[in-house]
Amino acid sequence: MPAHSFRLLSLGIGIVKLLRSSDWLIVPGVLLLAFFFVAPTVEIALSSIFDEGLTGKHFERFATKGAYVEVFRRTLVRSVWIGILCVLIGYPIAYFIVHRSLRTQVFLMLLILVPLWTSILIRTYAWMVVLGREGIVNNALIWLGLIDKPLRMMFTTGAVYVAMIQILLPIAVIACYSAMTEIDRTLPRAAKVLGASPWKAFRHVFLPLSLEGALTSFVIVFMLSMGFFITPALVGGRKDAMLANVIAHNVEQLNWGFASALALLLLVATIIVIVVVRLLANRFVGVRSVGMAP
């Protein structure tokens, strides 16, 4: 049999095998991602370095203008903090929920989910109502006689933090909760009967087993904050702009190349932080081993 017809035959067998197994179900998903995710990402990467020929001018513009570097640094630091704060607040909430009866768990998780059904824009407007000059908080404080003049809360960095954490917290809780439900309930019990105090049972058994969930929740919240756009624009001041706001501005100005360069930087920074967090976390897990067998 000639080589090419043999190759054709094996290709045919391959296709038949693929169609027989349920693996072909992944094809639409792969196609969708290829067209609407991979292709645009490559397009962005290319347009950041090709502008009437190969050029590094967009990255040079970023590096030489202190304002851009400052926005980049702010975005990164703020996203890391919001990730950490969401985990620190969300983890205990998930811990509380997972230790209730099943019925209560369902109810409490429903409460956590409800805000997610509301759009980010609307939730951000809600914060404007709460934090504004004539807002609920100011009126309440004045009525209580704690302050004479309204506090300035809108258009501050604090407002951005509060609003972003409130918006992203449910996601952190859900990620932690789903990891915690995977933990065998007898394990903390086994730890206790074997001599671990409640704190040690948590520290050496529950925490390491739920750390994966805490990390996932940090990573998701961090990634989402890196791209946050509406909330900082509406409740933050002029100095609270994040990288996504700058990208949007440049797209409006039709500076496609520069916007692409910024987007690429955002992507790379996000990936680096996630990798570093994973590496750090792996070193931190578990009781100190008594070592290996001889």
Binding site: D184, L187, A190, A191, L194, G195, A196, S197, K200, H204, V205, P208, L209, V285, G286, V287, S289, V290, G291, M292, A293
Partner: peptide, 16 residues
């Protein structure tokens, strides 16, 4: 404990 080696599992009550 799924995250500990067999040896660490057995050593756990002693470490505690």
């Amino acid at each position: 404990f799924p995250h500990m080696s067999v040896l660490d599992n057995v050593a756990f009550p002693l470490r505690m």
